[in-house]
Structures are given as C-alpha cells and as structure tokens.
Nucleic acid binder design. Structure first.
Lengths: 350, 350
DNA sequence: ATGTTTCTCGAAAACGTTTTCGAAGCCTAT
DNA sequence: ATAGGCTTCGAAAACGTTTTCGAGAAACAT
C-alpha cells in the first residue's frame, strides 16, 4: 500500500484527516496536524499529482511554451533561462509550478498547444515570441484558458508583457539626433514579428518630432543572425545616400555588422554610428564598445508571473491593481559606438 | 458533462468501448473504431492527462531538468533548445512527451527533483550538467526512476551521453604538436565540473604520447565567461615560460582571451595559437577565425532520447542493443587561430 | 439538567480514465 | 439442433486524492 493511505494507517487516522492536515484546512486540530506533517516528512510522502489534480480539476501547473526551431530575435544567451527563473520565483510563492513546454520544430504550434491544453496538462500558459495575429492567441482565448504572452500579438484583448521596442527606438533617435545625426537608418527583422512594426513606429514618430523626413530606404530588413548583420552592413553601404548612423532592433546582428564595416575598410562608430538593442555577452566584447540597452530579465520573468497570476481567478485578488499589459522598460548603457558627427576629428589610430 | 462520457453518449456506446477505440486495442470492431476516431476529432476530444495517468500509474511524460542559475560551460546559444528538439523528436514517436523542469536558482536541486519524482509528475528524467559525484544521481538511483545524464558523474552505474572532452583534448594536442608546438597550455573550468578532469586527462595522455613533459602550471583554471577568458589571457602572459599555444575546454572564453591578447599588444593566432572548444555564434566572428569543434546538438538530443528509452521497461526491446553510456564525437573545424610555429614569418599588418 | 454552539474527525462520493471479465451475438463444425 | 469458438461490447472496479457532510464530543449558555 502506498500514498496517503499508508500514511493514514501509520498514524491510525483517516485519510481525509491526513489530507486536511497536509492542505492546512480549518477543521483540523493543530495537534494532529503537527503529527501528520512530521510523519509525512519522515516517510517522505508527497501527494500524487494525478490524483490530486483529477479531484481538483486543476494541476497547479503553468506551462511556458517555447519553440525550439525559430530562434526569436532575442533568443541569445540564456535569455529564457533567466526569465524562467523569475517566473518560477513568483509562482512558487503561490504553490504553483512552472514547466517549460518545448514545441518540436516539426509540430504545428497550435496543435501542440491544443494537445497540452486539451489534456489538462496545465492550468495556464505563457507563450513566447508572440507574433502579429498569432493563431495561438485565438486558440487560447477560445479555449478560455488563462495566458499571458511574452510579446504583443497586435490584438489587445489579451494580456502580455513586452520589451519597450517603441521607447528604445525613440530614445535612440533622440540620442543620435542630439549628436548631430540626421541620416539615421534602422534595422528591422525580416520575419513578421510584431516588434518590427513597434520599432519602426517609434523610429518614425521620433523622426517626425525632430522634423527629420522619413526615408523608406533607410528601414532595412535583415535576418536575425550574425550573417544577417553582415548583409545589413553591405545593404547600408550600398545606399545612394549613405546614412551616418543605424539603430538595431535585435542583438544578434551587431557583430556581423561590425565585421562587414571593417571588411569594407570602415570603422564602426567612427564612420557609422551604431546603437544596438540589448546588451548581451555576444557583443559585450565588440570594439568600440557598443552602445545598447540593458534590462533585468529575471525581473521581466517576475512581471510575467504576476500578470499571469492576476488572470487566475484564485489569485486575482492578490494582484487586482496590476495592469494586464505591461511595457517593459530598458535602460541605455552608453558605449563608444555612437560618437557625435559634428566635430569631424581625425583621430590617429594607435 | 465532459470528457469521454460525452463522447460515448454522443455515439451511443459505452465509455469502455470508446477508450478501447482510442487506444487501439484488439477487441474492437474496426468499424466502430473508425466512428469513434472520427467523432473524437470532430469534437476535439483529448483524453484528460490526470485521469489517464492515475489509472495507468504512469504519466507518459519525461522531464528534462535544467538549472537556471549555474550557466554550464556549454550553455551558450540556444544549446538546450536544440537538444530539446532532438529529444522531442525521438520521444514523440513513442507517444511520450517532454517537459522541461527549470529548477529555480533559490531551490535545492535535489529537493526539487525529489518533489517532481515524488508526486509522480514524470516517468523518467534527463538531468543536465551532471557533476562529479552528483547528489542527484544518488537520489534518482535510490528512487529507482529511470534517468540519463547529459554529462558524466564519474560513477559508472548510470547511463549518460556526454561530449567527447578527452578526444577533443587529445586531438587538439596532436594538431598543435604536429604544427611545431610543445609549450601547450590548457584552460579548464574553475568549478568542479567533471569535464575538467576528462579534458585534462586527454590533454596529459596526448602529451605523454608525444613525449612532451606535463607542466602543471600550464593547466589554468578560469571562469566560464567572457571575463574569465580575459583573466585567462593575463594568466597565460604572466607565466615564466610563456606557452606558444592554448587549448580551451569551453566556448565562452574565446572572445575574452582574444581581447586580452590584443590589449597586451599581441596577435591571437600569431603570437599564441588557440584551439577553441565548441563552435558557437559567439566566437564565429572572431578574427582570426577560431579553430574549434562542431557537432549536431539535435543529434545529441536524439541520442539522449534513445538512451533514455532503452532504460524504460516498455521500450527496452526496441533499443536493446544500445550502449547505456555514449561519448558524443565532435568534428574539427579548422580556422586560422592555430598556425604553425616553425616558420616565424613576420606578416606586415595591413 | 437541557439545549445550543463549537470543534474535530471519519465515511463516502467524486474527478476521468483504463482494464478486466463476463455476456451476448454470430458463425462453424459436428 | 447443439456445442463450441470467435468477435465485440458493456458493467464495474480501480487508480490517489480532495471535499462535503454528518456524527460525535466537548464546551458553553440557559
């Protein structure tokens, strides 16, 4: 005999009482509760998940779906690992567990999600790399399962947390204009990720604010990779009116761009001012040091967890004031890749 | 009413028959089976996980535990994401699902594992970054739950798949000796990871084979990070007898080492030959291009899945011939960071 | 002493599924 | 016509837990 029955027999009390003791319910004598807890720890009893969630109709588990195939533009470092950690720390305080659901590259994400939800594997979900008009959003809202997106889908009826792409783009334009630049290009992702639109919109509105005309040929789409960065460089250099600065909307292209410029005999920063997106170990050693933005991914995970909890009926009261949609700020980390353009000093190379 | 009952009532047959049809058992009329499958697809019925696994005593789920805090030396890129994909593809063929279990940085890994196993959340496990005398190994063997380690623990009673650290170290020494180097240093991880011992052992045996004396001061331990690479460089340059080559046992230090040499006025490759460990996007753009090793991480995941399946009683027959411990080979990708030392040509800097 | 409340516990139902086992129907061979 | 075998299905138990509800005891008020 195993499980709660063994524990109950060992203590010579009923299984109902044991359950109540373990779940800390009100109609239990503190004395017997202590005894049960002690015996449970001693025998190493842990309640069976299947039995529990079958009875409760809930698994106390939230899933974090990731897609292993399509590397998101922000998928470098241990980006996700850090976010997981933040989410975990919030959920665990409410006796919820986080499991990561990796959708295989050869399976349809919606099917995968439907399978996981349909079998009642998780109570709630976090979906990452939300795309514009993401079919997963429609599926989950129809299924009525609480979820929060790491990324916006464009539709505003669901909750999400997302990096401040617009703000970063605006701030970058502000900074470059302040340093004398007007011919400012922007690098956008080739895929239909929503961040491209957001970044472009921030870029354009800042240009407008400064009275600088928007040139469509300055909005360059490229692949989110080292190679994409190299191609971005050649594209920039082949423009009729060569820009004096460029803003990147994802971190993986910086190194390739640097190399592309160097190969063309140009100096990154000096001949083309560059503002990167997120600080990462990949471009931390670039020279000149890349001006970019930093943020705490663990805190981002915490925010994600909190927004999710506010969706769950059982915890909504704890987080009632929380907005369902949060733009996550990023902080500028100045480097040497975006010098002013006015004073055209010829610095001697050491 | 929901679940299998609704489906049964809709078809006007018993729930037992429906279950048998869905699970493709023998005592079912092919005709009715077809009807059930059709109706199930139409109504979008998916068997509830809790009910199923409660009855069966198994969850049809394997867990892949990762620790978000301690970045393993190989934890760059989307290393894990790619491995997950490989594991998934194997398991899914046997109707098993993979979930990733991220242990929070503030929770004890053994406790976490005990909790997951105790509640019957998963049937089997993959544990990553296995350390020497890893307590998780002892705990899992005692619990009698099938598992395979991504990495060796040093004990040989459990199954594992691991990169060929010894082979890589040997091959690197061979290559460098062949190119005229004898003062060859080796960079080892600071932490007690088992790979350090393996790498060192391969390094030493190759040296011995070539009749080169082993110098303990050439075995340098450093942190697995960009900064660790920089410190590695300063440590190398401060040696009384400066080595002419160095072999790296993890990929994250290459860029820092390059920078450290450049800052000291030396040229990576020319003044110090370098052979890196794993090819990664982080050091793919280093100049001169880093000689290193490459391997298919997806195939590694597949191997991991197969070894795990061979541990499971239900699938052991399919994979009976498979060895329980597999050393995963890596292939040399020549670069320009390890030129021969004999011909001391002075190349003019362009 | 009796009625009423408070406290603690146990019996039993319920969650959704799989699986065993017996029954019913049909076919075949005698 | 009857016995036996084969095929297909349904009733019911079982998995381990939580939770409802009533019972009993104890404490309190009248």
């Amino acid at each position: 005999m195993k499980g709660i029955r063994a524990l109950a027999r060992h203590l010579d009390i009923s299984i109902g009482t044991v359950s109540k003791a373990l779940n800390n319910r009100f109609d239990i004598n503190p004395e017997t509760r202590k005894r049960v807890l002690l015996a449970a720890a001693e025998l190493g009893y842990v309640a069976n998940q299947s039995g529990r969630s079958l009875r409760q109709g809930a698994t106390q588990t939230v899933g974090f779906m990731i897609e292993s195939n399509q590397a998101s533009p922000t998928d470098s470092d241990n980006f996700f690992m850090t976010v997981f950690d933040g989410v975990q720390s919030v959920l665990r305080g409410h006796h919820l567990d986080l499991v990561v659901l990796p959708c295989a590259s050869d399976e349809d994400p919606v099917d995968y999600l439907a399978r996981m939800v349909g079998r009642g594997f998780v109570d709630a979900l976090i979906i990452s790399a939300t795309r514009k008009r993401d079919p997963r959003v429609a599926m989950l809202t129809k299924a009525g399962i609480p979820f929060v997106g790491l990324g916006r889908s464009g539709e505003d009826h669901h909750s999400w947390v997302d990096l401040d792409f617009e703000g970063v783009a605006e701030q970058s334009v502000d900074r470059l204009v302040g340093r004398g630049h007007t011919d400012i290009a922007v690098a956008l992702p080739a895929t239909g990720l929503n961040l491209g639109n957001l970044f472009l919109s921030g870029y354009r509105s800042a240009l407008k604010r400064h009275g600088v005309a928007y040139r469509p040929e300055y909005a360059i789409r490229s692949e989110s990779s080292d190679r994409g960065g190299y191609e971005l460089g050649t594209a920039l250099l082949s423009l009729d009116r060569r820009p004096s600065a460029v803003i990147l909307s994802y971190e993986l292209v910086a190194a390739g761009l640097y190399r592309s410029l160097t190969d063309a005999g140009l100096r990154p920063g000096q001949d083309l001012a560059i503002i990167g997106f997120r600080e990462s170990s990949q471009n931390r050693h670039l020279s000149p040091h890349l001006t970019s933005y930093s943020t705490s991914l663990r805190d981002l995970g915490i925010a994600l967890g909190e927004v999710l909890l506010s969706q769950l009926p059982s915890f909504a009261d704890h987080y009632k004031g929380l907005p369902h949609q949060r733009i996550w700020p990023m902080e500028l980390v100045p480097g040497e890749s975006d010098p002013a353009t006015r004073r055209k000093r010829k610095v001697a190379l050491k």
